Amino acid sequence: MIIVLKAEATKHDADEILNKIESAGLKPLYMPGTERTVLGALGDERVLQGLNITAHPMVDDVKPILSNYKLVSRELYPADSVVHIGSVPFGGEHFSIIGGPCAVEGLESFRASAEAAVKGGAVALRGGAFKPRTSPYSFQGGGKEALEVMQQVSKELGVPAVTEVMDTADIDLICQHVDALQIGARNMQNFNLLKAVGRTNTPVILKRGIAATIEETLLAAEYIVDAGNPNVILCERGIRTFETATRNTLDLNAVALMKRKSHLPVIVDPSHGTGIRELVGPLAKAAVAVGADGVIIEVHHEPKEALSDGKQSLYPDQFAQLMTELDAFIRAAGRRSSLRKAA
């Protein structure tokens, strides 16, 4: 439930109610505002009702949280959350671009692709060190060596880096080398992994599963936030439908709806959402129009030589051109562009 205190309520009054909530075995939440203090209580509704919170003289109103996802819901936090990857903001008035190759293929290759991404305007780098592949015979990533490459190039270029985590055993190692963790579509409902990244303070990009509903996606985010990590960025990357002309069907409906239902930032992956290089640009622009807080785009210095996802990776000049065009859309939408060259 949401507990709105009266304007004259003090911190002592809030603590009194929070202690009552906690002593009942429930989860208390303290959310001071400029005009009113709002408290939250999460747990068994029968226990909540038995606390008789409305009887406290400093309580102005008590409202139930109707959605199944409590912590990520706008019912609890009406304002947009801003999540930082390194110094780069995602959410609120900001629109930020992550760019880089699908996989880290070696120092020189990753450096070349990363330089192209940053030169084009990306403010954060992407790259896979551990790769979930449908076939066991496909390139699986460079592991720790790839993480070291990402860390080196990230420091050289002065931008934060993001990579995917697939196993709870790798979390500490990955957190030592990069600035944000990515939960891929295949692991969106790997609940042990979600809880484990929730016990870190490292920002998490949570990708929607290929057959996940919007509510399932938000509940997956709830696992992370409930475990203690509020730094979650949702990512729409396309879902599997009957259509076979594209790799996935990029569901931009979901972006607008998740922005309405949740305070968390939402970014879009038009590379995986389409699987076709020529469609990445139009869908990135559409992402701005529906209210996304950023995009994550695959760019490779030589896509035809890429070990994975070369077909959907942009050439450096294509990426730079798209960033120039995208900046106009960002500004037209009234957002603050985080493009490096536009700063």
Rank of each mutant, 00 (worst) to 15 (best):
Y223Q: 10
I210T: 13
A24S: 12
I97P: 00
A286V: 09
G334V: 13
Q151S: 14
T249G: 10
L18A: 09
G184A: 12
G120S: 06
G86N: 01
L173S: 11
P265E: 02
L29K: 01
I53D: 01
R186M: 07
D179Q: 14
K207A: 12
S337C: 04
K11H: 10
S337G: 06
L181R: 08
D60R: 08
L39H: 03
L173V: 13
S262Q: 09
E115Q: 06
L71R: 08
S73I: 08
R126M: 01
I97M: 14
L283R: 09
G106D: 12
E35F: 11
R277Q: 05
V149R: 03
A196T: 11
P89S: 09
H301L: 03
A284F: 07
D309A: 02
K119T: 15
I233L: 07
L173Y: 05
N229G: 08
V197K: 09
R126C: 00
S338G: 08
G86H: 01
A180Q: 05
I239T: 15
D13M: 07
E105H: 08
G142L: 15
I85M: 08
P101A: 15
P160G: 10
T37G: 04
D293Y: 02
L29A: 09
A112E: 13
R336G: 04
K311F: 02
S23K: 15
A333N: 08
G106I: 08
G106H: 05
M166L: 15
V268S: 02
H12T: 15
G128C: 06
L71N: 00
P89W: 03
C235D: 05
S96G: 08
L5Q: 03
D61C: 04
A161P: 00
F95V: 03
L26K: 10
L147I: 10
M323S: 06
I183C: 06
G334C: 15
R36W: 00
V232K: 09
F110G: 09
E215H: 12
A7R: 13
I296F: 01
Q140I: 04
E22P: 03
V83P: 00
G91A: 12
M58S: 14
E75W: 02
P160Y: 00
N231D: 12
R340E: 00
L322F: 12
G275T: 10
L181T: 06
V197T: 12
D317K: 11
G33V: 01
R331W: 06
A55S: 14
K207R: 14
M31E: 05
I183L: 09
Q312E: 09
R260Y: 13
D170C: 07
I205Q: 03
H12I: 12
T134N: 06
R208S: 09
N201R: 14
T249H: 05
D317S: 15
V159T: 04
Y315H: 11
A185F: 08
V299R: 00
A212D: 07
I97E: 01
S313K: 01
Y223T: 10
T249I: 07
A221Q: 10
Q318N: 04
V83C: 06
T202N: 01
K311L: 13
K259G: 11
P132K: 13
D15W: 06
G127K: 01
E35R: 12
N190R: 13
L125V: 04
L18H: 03
P303I: 07
